[in-house]
Design a protein around this nucleic acid. Structure first.
Lengths: 159, 159
DNA sequence: GATAATGTACTCGGATATGTTGTGTCCGAGTTGTTCTGG
DNA sequence: CCAGAACAACTCGGACACAACATATCCGAGTACATTATC
């Protein structure tokens, strides 16, 4: 069970975008320089966030990505699931109905206990992440952080 | 973020072993037939559980695997982590200290907020699984289940 | 008949191929801001 | 000086290789039981 490395990139990138002035945007190249990560791959992942409705993208000069919603409405869960997918890590394939020990179908009307417990654990994980928004994350930073972030990010803009 | 398919196999296999009489054991080949899964691969994974101290193995005829501890002391977390490893799915690589936006080391004395929240979510997941033991799982089964499991499992023994 | 040696069948354990998914890269379509030319 | 058109640079978006891990398989080392021969 391992999350893609790009998960960290996108969590930080969205947190960075949340510190921009309303209406401002940053390009994939800018963010890649800001964190020293592969630009093309980062762009590919940012597109996933666009599809998930977390970000919006504008093409052309001065374009880039920005938050599609207020930071307070974007949870860490939305971001993580946009990158990694919404499927649960444990997938019940009903092996209790296979092989010599196969149970009768009528005995399997209720969900397998093991699958249920694994699903509960996954839900606990989801709830934990759903309880934290980007606004919460920004709130923990020093008051001077957003201004510095904007300044340093602007220095990565070409020309 | 995806758990190996063998996770389901081993959860069911350990639950099956928990239904055996004290001292009895089942071989990898038996369990493979019982659930209709690849025997060699299942054996490989069962070895991981032995290394993790969840099971003990005895070689030779009438040998096989059995629980190394009482079922009440074996949590689902132990089993899952024995199969998949104990490392957290989110690995913080401190990208906040890289690139143009790199923070000063003295600003990074405390853990990154994002890494902290991801770790909390993982801990919620672990706690959920740590709260369920094999004994709890067995307790939810009908009272007639263990006897039937033993009977069907015995039918997979060779000769 | 009891005992000891022998053989056999079964068991785990580790070393070895293959497929799928994450990782990384590249190039093309589209849009915006700029520049140049003509009125 | 102003307006319009052409240009150029920057942007996203999707299509194309590479690598690592899960999956699947095989064969060898070791052990306990059953058998057999001997005393």
């Amino acid at each position: 069970m391992k999350l893609p490395v790009s998960t960290e990139w996108l969590l930080h990138c969205t947190a960075t975008l949340a510190q921009l002035e309303p209406g401002a945007s940053a390009s994939a190249a800018q963010l890649a320089l800001y964190y020293d990560v592969p630009a093309a791959y980062l762009a590919k992942q940012l597109q996933e966030l666009v599809k998930a409705g977390v970000l919006t993208a504008t093409t052309g000069p001065r374009g880039g990505f920005r938050l599609a919603r207020p930071a307070s409405e974007i949870t860490l869960l939305r971001i993580v699931e946009a990158v990694d997918g919404t499927s649960a890590p444990y997938e019940c394939r009903e092996i209790r109905q296979q092989g010599r020990g196969a149970l009768a179908p009528e005995e399997c009307r209720s969900i397998c206990v093991l699958a249920e417990k694994m699903a509960e654990a996954h839900e606990a994980w989801r709830s934990s992440l759903a309880g934290v928004s980007l606004a919460d994350v920004i709130a923990t930073l020093p008051a001077t952080a957003p201004a510095r972030t904007r300044s340093r990010l602007a220095s990565t803009r070409p020309s």
